[in-house]
Design a protein around this nucleic acid. Structure first.
Lengths: 160, 160
DNA sequence: GATGTGAGGTTACAATATCACATGAACAAA
DNA sequence: TTTGTTCATGTGATATTGTAACCTCACATC
C-alpha cells in the first residue's frame, strides 16, 4: 500500500467515541454530554453532514432544540482538535476515524450520491506542501478533494 | 521549472478579455455585453471575488442593478468554459489568466490578506487523479487548494 | 404574424455561517 | 455566604451564499 509508513487504527462506533474523547481531553478540552452527542450524530452519518443536518439530528436525539450556531461552535472545536474534518467543496463535516493521528488528507467526493471517502497519502500531501513552499508561500492546511463518481455510481451507470 | 512542458501565455487586461471572448465563442456561447462586463469586473479583482462582490461591481459599472443570481448563471457558464475558476475554500471566483489552455490547477490562498495565487503543476494534479482512480473512483475535478500565509504576510509578521 | 429559443430580469426563498448578548453551572477567592 | 471568574451553552438576530420558478424581451425562422 502506497499511503503511509505507519499503520492507522481505524476506530468505529463506541471505540471511535472513546478515541475522540481521549484526543479532545488531551487537547485540554472537556468532553461534555453535548459534545459527545454531536460527535455521535456526526459519526453516524455515512456521508459528510452539514451543520444544519447535525443540528437536526442532535435535536431529535436530545429531545430539545440544539441551534446551528451551537453546532458550529462545537464543530470548530472538533476540527481544531482533529476529531472532524471539513469538506470544503461540500460545505460539510465528516468524523475523523483516527483522531489520534494527524494527517493532511484527501477526500474523494461522489457528485452522484455524496459518498465521500477519505484517503491518506502523505507523499501527495507532502508534495503539495512543498510546491506551495517553493513559491514562498507558508502552507498551513492543504485542501485536497476530488469531485467525481464513486465506483458504485460508475457501475450503476454502466449497468443502467 | 517543474510545472509543465508547454508554455502558457498569461493574458492581461484587454488581451485577457479578448482571449476569454474567443474561448467562450469557440464553446458555442455568445459573448454578450453583460458577460463582458462581468468578466471584466471579475478580472479586475486582485483576489477571489464572491458572486455578490461581482454583482455590486457590475451594478456600479452598468449603472443599474444586476442581481446575484444573474451573476451566478454567468459565472457557472464561465467556469464550464474555463474562463473562470471557483475557489471552493473561499466560496469565491477568480478569472483564469489563460482560458485557452485547460489545466487542473492549484490555488494558494492567504488566510491573512486573501491573496490567491494560481499554480499549474500537472505532475501533482496527475498524481492526485491517479490516486483517486486507484481506489476505483472516477475523478472529474480535483480541488487542490492550500490555505496558509503568502510571502508578504509572512514578512509583515517577521518585521512587526 | 406565429412560434421557438436563448439571455437576462424579478421575486421569492433555501442553505450556510456568524455575531452579540444572556444564562447557568462549577469553582475559586474574599 | 457572597462575589467573581471562567467556560459551555442558549437565544435571537442577521449576514452571506446559493437556487428555483417564472416572466419578458430580442431576435431568428417559418
Amino acid at each position: 500500500m502506497a499511503a503511509s509508513a505507519h499503520t492507522h487504527h481505524e476506530h468505529h462506533g463506541a471505540d471511535l467515541s472513546r478515541a475522540a474523547q481521549a484526543t479532545l481531553e488531551q487537547a485540554g478540552e472537556q468532553w461534555t454530554d453535548l459534545r459527545a452527542q454531536i460527535f455521535d450524530v456526526l459519526a453516524k452519518f455515512d456521508k459528510p453532514a452539514s451543520a444544519y443536518d447535525i443540528a437536526d439530528g442532535v435535536s431529535k436525539a436530545a429531545g430539545r432544540r440544539i441551534a446551528p450556531n451551537t453546532v458550529y461552535r462545537i464543530l470548530d472545536l472538533f476540527v481544531g482538535a482533529n476529531l472532524a474534518r471539513r469538506v470544503e467543496s461540500s460545505n460539510a463535516y465528516i468524523a475523523n476515524a483516527h483522531p489520534d493521528c494527524l494527517h493532511d488528507c484527501i477526500f474523494l467526493v461522489c457528485d452522484s450520491c455524496g459518498q465521500t471517502t477519505h484517503l491518506d497519502d502523505d507523499s501527495i500531501t507532502k508534495t503539495v506542501r512543498s510546491a506551495a513552499k517553493a513559491t514562498g508561500f507558508a502552507p498551513v492546511r492543504p485542501v485536497i478533494e476530488v469531485r467525481g463518481k464513486c465506483a458504485d455510481c460508475e457501475d450503476d451507470q454502466a449497468a443502467g
